[in-house]
Write a protein that binds this DNA or RNA. Structure first.
Lengths: 137, 137
DNA sequence: GAATTTATTTTAATTACTAAAATATATAAA
DNA sequence: TTTATATATTTTAGTAATTAAAATAAATTC
């Protein structure tokens, strides 16, 4: 039986909002008790993962203007969680990376999960990404 | 071979950010060319799906204070996309719902996707939610 | 070496958000 | 009933996040 356009849109939204709720729930656990905004926590994690990022990369990852990215880094720099290094090959570029204190903060953020929990969430995310790869919008 | 805690955290973040990127990409397509913030678009869609929402429900869905939810509704009301109705059983509660113009706007938002595209994205989202159900954080 | 491009920062203004007080209705207890 | 307490939303005033555009500075091109 053929579904109407109305129905398929309805289905899409239904599934989309379940995902949004689940995603909010996860972010709430991850950033819970952290006195940092969600984006600042995510920036710390990205810096942990990628080792260093340019301001433009940060602004793209968070869909913000470079000015806003500079501002986020200022805040984390004030807390001594990140440092800026002008790269010698091209001194226009800043390389933002975690300090020792920043690394420790990232560890603390994940300490609310057991290793087993992290592994199971991680493999679920992997499955999700397999689906993304198969389906491209 | 046993993976270190460092490694499993690394894996989790890696997969998490791919999901975040994909999600950003989708939201960009969805809200592209719309002169409304991402959250205002998502609120229109939620109202389309649920028919009506209370202010407290909106604030929970978007993880905002009730004051912020009131403000979002004010903006959409000014555009004549939503209306507020005090429910008669309990006049403290407002029921926010789409106007005819709001319904049309939601249709317009989805007109950037073909029916087939919507169906395929929808079934991918369904698969993702099956994974969520199996895995609970 | 002058003009153009690229990367980041700064500035000023706007927008989004929060916390807390105010308003209004509902419920419960005396 | 009155009074107190609880619930739902709105208002207010202040703060935080964000943008657009100008400023700075280094790199590239012509």
């Amino acid at each position: 039986m053929e579904k109407s356009l109305e129905d398929v849109i309805h289905n899409l939204m239904e599934e989309m909002f379940i995902i949004q709720n689940k995603s909010n729930e996860f972010m709430k656990i991850l950033t819970h008790d952290e006195n940092l905004s969600e984006n600042l926590v995510l920036l710390l994690l990205r810096l942990k993962l990628y080792r260093h990022m340019k301001i433009t990369e940060i602004s793209e990852a968070f869909m913000l203007t470079p000015g806003a990215a500079t501002n986020m880094c200022d805040k984390l720099e004030k807390l001594d969680y990140v440092e800026r290094i002008r790269i010698k090959d091209d001194r226009r570029v800043v390389r933002v990376s975690l300090t020792k204190k920043g690394e420790e903060r990232v560890e603390a953020i994940f300490s609310k999960f057991s290793k087993e929990k992290i592994e199971s969430i991680s493999s679920m995310f992997m499955e999700i990404n397999k689906l993304f790869k198969k389906n491209e919008y």
